[in-house]
Amino acid sequence: MSDTDLIGALRVLEREALAAVSGATDEAALETVRVTYLGRTEGSISKVLRGLGALPTGARPAVGQEANRVKIAVSEALKVRGLALAPQTRGSAEDLTLPSRGPWRGGLHPITQAVDEIWHIFRDMGFARARGPEADTEWYNFEALNTPLDHPAADEQDTLYLVDSVLLRSHTSPVQVRTMEAYEPPIRIIAPGWVYRRDTYDATHTPAFMQIEGLVVDEGVSFVDFKATLAEFARRYWGPDTRVRFRPSFFPFTEPSAEVDVKRVITKPDGTRVETDWLEVMGAGMVDPAVLENVGYDSERYTGWAFGMGPARIAMLKHGVDDLRTFFENDMRFLAQFSS
């Protein structure tokens, strides 16, 4: 046979084979079809393939390619029909209310979710994330932050020490100093991370917990920018009707210093909307010029603001968790409630 004849014959075989496949009504019939066309020795398509060697060299590729195509097409059809004819393993195919089959669900820890939600809002306002070591020195944790070691303010966050002047950072504020040392303004960062305090475990304290620091430094940054940005954050996080209050406070590394309170509007089950009490959500303030000078910034030229907040406390409020320790148990039944 010539190569063109062969190709024509292959196409005829293909049509026949496909018709036979769809005509097969059970798995045995389908197997007969397979043997007839693709059987290793007697299959009619296989025979054509074996006959290739007899062709002149120049004709082989074209015929070979076509034979391969037909073989694949018929194999696919056999496979699809085979699946349709295969007996159902168990149960009834018609009862679509039966549960689906799929992989396990997983999820982020609720505190990570809070950190991420907060981060995404700040990201939208032009912030990036910075980080620093958890074991740090007194210089970064206190002195560079305008907190002399012999001032009562150094006591307020009772600190865990490792050796000499090396401690476990009691807040994320050392990241402010390290970031300013490494970069020139404009600075616009948040720094989520673990911090440590000499506390015993109870419903509202753990000796290790997450904190999120924030820092903005540039020319012309004022108390108005500070208030506006944090109020905007609060409205984006807690809802547009949230009221925000700034109360004077004291932190050695900010001046003026403020506590930020929010009053949320919540919808009760009966549909009425009520305001919550004021909730303290962060400590903040304008960066003290001494801190800017400590990192070599010109405090006459640059001004800035900073904040620190606790995502665990925010997650507690948000989810109604009343004991911080629950977050550390990592019970699968607890974590699954926050699955993604």
Partner: peptide, 25 residues
């Protein structure tokens, strides 16, 4: 001055800002 004026008496209008130098870690 800020404290006696009252923190809440200051406006809180969001102004423009310059992009920061610090990349996301």
């Amino acid at each position: 001055v800020a404290r006696t004026h009252g923190f809440d008496a200051f406006p809180s209008d969001l102004g423009p800002y310059r992009a920061g130098n610090v990349p996301d870690h």
